[in-house]
Structure formats: structure tokens, C-alpha cells
Amino acid sequence: MEKKRLYWRICCIAAIFLCILTFTPLVIPQGIATPELAGVPYSLWTSFIITVLLVVLTYIGTRVHPGMQNEEEDV
């Protein structure tokens, strides 16, 4: 249970970190479209990866959310 709580916290911190990262010049340098990845402009491919990572984090969250443990115990 304690481990789950820790993993859940790590997921939350990672999600907040990704959101903050999105609004830095690391992802949205103003007026710059390079370097491209397979022809896709820089801000688009980096933010696409961030979106996918957020969904993956949500999936991990469903596995480690401490509330699931409680519900199993309730049952």
C-alpha cells in the first residue's frame, strides 16, 4: 500500500512536470519550427510526445492509484 502511494505520488509529480515543461521554451520556442522530426515541426512533435506520455502516466496511475486497493478491500 505504501509503495502504491509512493508510485502514485511519482506519477502526479511527473504529470505536473510534463505540464510545466510544455510551456517552457524547451517545447514552445517562440517563432522556431526546427529541428523537425520526420518533417513535423518542433513544437508539434515534442508536444505530441508529451500528450502520449500524459496518457501513459494516466494508465500507470490506474495501476498504482491507492484508491483501487481500498475498493478491493471494500469488496
Binding site: 505540464c19 510544455t22 515541426p41 513544437s43 508536444s47 500524459l54 496511475g61 490506474t62 492509484h65
Partner: peptide, 21 residues
């Protein structure tokens, strides 16, 4: 332009995580 992806898709990605919580 492409920043519209951040406006909606990144925000939706974060929203589904918040939905869990």
C-alpha cells in the same frame, strides 16, 4: 497553426490524468 495541438491535445492529456484523481 500547430500550437493548437498544445491548446487542446496536451490539455486533454492532462485532463484525463486529473480525471483519475
Amino acid at each position: 497553426g500547430v500550437g493548437a495541438w498544445i491548446f487542446l491535445a496536451v490539455s486533454d492529456g492532462a485532463m484525463v490524468f486529473l480525471l483519475l484523481w
